[in-house]
Structures are given as structure tokens and as C-alpha cells.
Design a protein around this nucleic acid. Structure first.
Lengths: 343, 343
DNA sequence: GTGAAAGCGCTAACAC
DNA sequence: GTGTTAGCGCTTTCAC
């Protein structure tokens, strides 16, 4: 589309300014080799005409790419929304266009999105969705990204992936440990876990932390019910129903993300089960709304916005020989949804 | 970036398949003029090699654009997140890349984002953020978009804008009327309104509806306190503080979006003011979390996801002579945050 | 049905 | 410091 003669070309600007197209190009892309005086005049003319360079031509001619891609599992999910905020913020500051793609937690979709971004010649790709425990699920993506990097592309991932790239790593395991520890400290022993897909590294790591806490307390984790459902509010509801049906005597539900925890709270409220009086509930992520729920959600805070910022900043830096990694701390935030285990 | 000899070119595919570059192009872009047999073989070779066409070259050569731009005020805002979901869903279905930009509700930023999208030669631009009451604030954007349309670009807006383009129009005024009516029916007379920027058409329209309901009930709107603050959770808190300080006797707070309502609820909870016992609260939008709050929020439902879908679908359709418009209904959803006015 | 060749608008060598 | 020109990788006439 957009083929016409209304759209201004660099040549139009050059003519209007009375310089060659090369000089015009240099002036606008702020490359050296033009007298500041001429450059300023050209920029003035361009601004006045409302000229905006054709990104495709620029990219094709070998100019630097002014866009980056962000791959999330699900934009509807506040976890990713906040990461996206961070990425967009840095992007805006750096004058970068951000293309957001989502995968629905499907590795095949992820691969396709990665390829699309590469085809779009984005300068950097941020993979924000969790990795998969099984490396083979991302094998092809790994290969494509490696080729992309060799060709000069930058890659950063958020979370544990089998992709070799700069990474922002939330300490999910420590978070899982902390929140489980918290429940155990409150005297809970009949705890159920509501989790998303266990094939995700995020889930696996959080779960590992939980298990660790049980072990540290000398308790068996083997008979703790772990209910797997979609990593969403709806999944949380589903998990809660299942848990209440099979284990009506639980005193705490440990959800592995806030969205699920919100679903759990909703079911408990519908059933007239008091929180934390009868059942304590915990989440993970500390999404913006967690503090405004009633009861306010006890959860593990992850600095999602900062993680998004960090990821893009890392990707933008000069590539290092070996992948960089930055860990993001997890802080237990105790609010009103947890209390002592009922006697 | 990405200039190298690892990235496959169309020519590589053509050579591997033993055809000319023209035939390869036709095969891959499914243009007619190639025998199905050859085309299939070329596609097979390309797939096997992992070839992905360079979007920039394709676009520059005059091919159809496979990307669209979405402009939102704030991705952190669930209202826009849900619209984005809708747009991304349709985009994925149609094989389109979606570039999301946010403006922070700043008309200048908006203009810049529009220009960037045009420079990116996106095939369509969806403006999802509210318009501004003052046309002059978007005058330049209007001009740029008009030029873009003349050049073959597609534009759709969500909400009332002074931009002439296909539009998805939520009936904000009816919604405002309905929710105000609801409070009046419950016997509330000392009502305060918490609102975002009144320079936004969305706010103006909702407010007009509220005013209408007052008029219909034979009540004066003149002395209803209308507190303006950012259209966010934080803004809601701020507004609530102000309202409680200046008008401690209000029995209802009508917030003009859910985010603000959540902030209001939070302040009331902190102050130990019961909802809806002492004060009723209403929102607007019906974001996903509204139903899971405690108390569940009475609000006006807007089909945000569908609005996003509609907007992109409209933009993708053959352009019509005159702008199309689709209205999106507003439904009052009564939940637990509103009750009879205390005696 | 297939191939050769002319651009699309820009950047970056390379001349001057 | 400025201009000329050869591509970047693709689509699309236009020949055959």
C-alpha cells in the first residue's frame, strides 16, 4: 500500500533545500560530514514539509534498525502488560518502535513470531515469556535466534530459557521458597498448590522453591496436592474448585501467579469461605491490582516493569562475548490474604 | 543491522529450486502466473531452507504491507490491554504484525507515533485512545492521517475523534446515564464524580450522560462535585481523598473508569468506610478484574476485546466512500459495590 | 508459464 | 564538505 506521489521522498527534501540527496541523508540521520549550518537548514526544511523517512528503504539500504520486537505469552496477562510497559518506556526514550507479539504459550506460535520479527529486521528481540522445561520445544527457535545473533541481531530473554542470550532472571525459586515458608510459619500443613503449565520453567522453578521449603521444614511434599490449570484467573477458579472438591480440609492455597490467586479468592468468596479466617491464599508476581483486592493479596513481588526495562537495555548494549545475566529479586509481600492456620 | 551473508535471499531459494527469482517471488507470494506444480516445489524448498522474506524489501518493492499499528494512551491500563488483545487476535488470524505505541495521553506524542507508523508503512492504523474535546489538539494528526489515507492507508479509531475515519463508538453517554440513573434510583443524592482528564471526549461523553440522568430526575448537576485526576488507580485514590475531605457526607462515588473506581475502593477500605453500606462506588469499562474485586464492582460493561477486533476488521475492509461507524453498546452491570443510600 | 530487468527510497562508498 | 552512484531484496511490468 501507500504507493503514490503524495508521500515525500528524501529527494523532495533535498531539492527543496537545494542540496544533494546524499547531503540530505547525512543531515537527517545526523551522520558527520556535513557542515552544521547546512544540516540544520535541511532539517528545518524537512520538518516544515512534514517529511518522515521511509523505514523500509532505510533498513534495506543498511541503516540501523529503529525497531525492536517483544514476544509475550499473553498480553491480557498483567504480568506481561507490566513488562511491556517497561520495554515501551525504554523504547520510547530511545526512539525505538516496539512490535509486540503474543504466542498464547504455544512454542510453535513463538517460533513463528520470532521469524516474523527477524523478517521485519528488528534490531533486537526480547523474549518475555517463560521458557519451556523441555529444550526440544524451543530447539528451532534457538537455532533461528542464534543465526539472527550471528547476523548482528540482539536478543534478550526474561526468565530461564534454553536460548543462549542475555537474560533477566527473576529468582522464582527463592520466591517460591519464601512464600511456602511463610505459610508453613503460619502453621499451615494442609496446603494445596494451584499452578499453570508445569512445562514452563517459571512454574517449575517456583514449584521447586516450594518443595525446598517443605523439605527444609522436614515435611513431605509428596502428598501436597498440586493442581495444574491455565495460568489465568479462570484457571485459578478451576483449580480452586478442584481443590475444594478433593481436599475440603485445606487451610491454604498457594497459587503460582496472582491471576490464579485472584480466581481462587473469587471461588472462596462465592462459597462463603473466609480468607484468611478459614483458608489463606497467596499469589506470585504482585501485579498492580494485588494490593487493591479484598483481602489484599499476600504475594511475591517481581519488579516486572524494571525487568522489561532491563531486558531492552541489555539487548541494546554492545553484545558481550558471553551472555550477560541479571537477576531480579523476589520479595515476599505479606498482606491480608494470609493468616494463622485455623486450629 | 543484520547485514551478512547468513540471511537467505530470495535468490538463494530460486537457485536451490532451479527457477528464476521472479518465479520464486510469485510462488511465495501466491500470485498467479506459476504452475501449481512449480509453485508448490518452490514453497517446499523455501520452507526447508527456513527462508523468510525481508519485509522491508517487500514493502519497498510495492508489496502489500503485512503490519498494522495500534495507538493506545497507556498499555498499563486494562482498558487498552483488552482492546489490544482484540486487535492482536484479529492480527494473528490475518497474519499481520501489530506495532503497539503509547502516547501517555499526550497529543504531541500521539502525532509522533502516527508519523512513525506512517514511516513504517503500516497498512493500517488503529487509534484506540480517546479523542480530545478540542479539535485543535489533533489538527496536525488529522492532516497526517488524511494524507496517509489518500495514499492508500487504512485508519480506524475507537471512540469519538475529530479524525474522519472508520470508527467504533462506545456509547459512553448512554453508559454514563445508566450508571448515574442507577445511583439515583437507589436513593443517592449526595454523589461525587471522580473523573480523568476532561479534555478527553470519552470523559466528556460519560459526564454528559451523568448530567443527563440528573436532569431527567429533575435534579441540579451544578453542585455535584466533579474531581478531576489522572485516569488511573492512583488518580482514583487521589480523587477519593479529595472527595472525602471536601464532602465527607457523600453516599456515592461515581468513577468514570474502573481503574479510578479501584483506587476509590482502596481508599474507602483503608478508612474503614463500608461499601456499599456507607458509600456506594461505581466504575466504567468492566475490566476483567472488576468482577473479582471485593465488593465486586458495579460498572458499565464495554466490549473492549470486540471493539479492538471490530476496529481492525473495519480498517482491513475495502475503504468506503464515507467513514463507517459501528456503535458498541454499554451495559450496566450491577454487582455488590452499590446499594441503597443510607437513610 | 517463465525469465530479464526496471525500479521502490534510502545509505554508504567513493569521487571530487 | 558535498555530490554521484552502486546496491539493499524484493515485486512487477514486459518480453518471450
Amino acid at each position: 500500500m501507500v504507493k503514490d506521489r503524495t508521500t515525500l521522498r528524501l529527494q523532495d527534501v533535498a531539492e527543496a533545500a537545494g542540496v544533494s540527496i546524499a547531503t540530505a541523508s547525512r543531515s537527517l540521520s545526523r551522520t558527520s560530514g556535513v557542515s552544521e549550518e547546512v544540516a540544520e537548514r535541511v532539517r528545518g526544511v524537512a520538518r516544515e514539509m512534514g517529511y518522515v523517512a521511509n523505514v523500509h528503504a532505510r533498513s534495506l539500504a543498511g541503516g540501523a534498525s529503529r525497531s525492536v520486537g517483544l514476544i509475550v505469552h499473553e498480553i491480557g496477562d498483567p504480568y506481561f502488560t507490566e513488562i511491556a510497559s517497561g520495554v515501551l518506556r525504554v523504547g520510547a526514550r530511545e526512539g525505538l518502535t516496539v512490535q509486540i507479539c503474543h504466542t498464547g504459550r504455544d512454542p510453535d506460535q513463538e517460533l513463528e513470531q520470532i521469524r516474523t520479527l527477524i523478517a521485519n529486521r528488528v534490531g533486537a528481540i526480547i523474549v518475555a515469556g517463560s521458557g519451556f522445561v523441555d529444550p526440544s520445544q524451543q530447539a528451532q527457535a534457538k537455532e533461528d535466534l542464534a543465526r539472527y545473533r550471528r547476523a548482528g541481531g540482539r536478543v534478550a530473554v526474561i526468565g530461564r530459557h534454553h536460548l543462549s542470550a542475555d537474560a533477566v532472571l527473576p529468582d522464582n525459586q527463592a520466591g517460591g521458597r519464601a512464600v511456602a515458608q511463610h505459610l508453613l510459619d503460619l502453621g499451615h500443613r494442609r496446603i494445596a498448590v494451584a499452578t499453570g503449565l508445569r512445562s514452563l520453567t517459571t512454574v517449575a522453578d517456583r514449584l521447586a522453591g516450594v518443595e525446598e521449603a517443605f523439605a527444609a521444614a522436614g515435611l513431605s511434599f509428596a502428598d501436597v496436592p498440586v493442581v495444574e490449570a491455565p495460568f489465568t484467573r479462570q484457571g485459578g477458579k478451576q483449580a480452586a474448585e478442584e481443590i475444594l472438591a478433593a481436599h475440603p480440609d485445606v487451610t491454604a492455597v498457594l497459587a503460582l501467579n496472582d491471576d490464579m490467586a485472584i480466581g481462587v479468592l473469587s471461588v472462596l468468596r462465592d462459597r462463603g469461605i473466609s480468607v484468611p479466617g478459614q483458608v489463606s491464599v497467596t499469589g506470585f508476581d504482585d501485579v498492580a491490582v494485588a494490593v487493591d483486592l479484598a483481602p489484599a493479596l499476600t504475594t511475591v513481588r517481581l519488579p516486572m516493569v524494571e525487568m522489561g526495562e532491563q531486558a531492552l537495555l541489555m539487548a541494546l548494549k554492545e553484545p558481550s562475548a558471553r551472555p550477560r545475566r541479571r537477576t531480579a529479586g523476589c520479595d515476599l509481600v505479606v498482606r491480608d490474604s494470609t493468616g494463622k492456620a485455623p486450629a
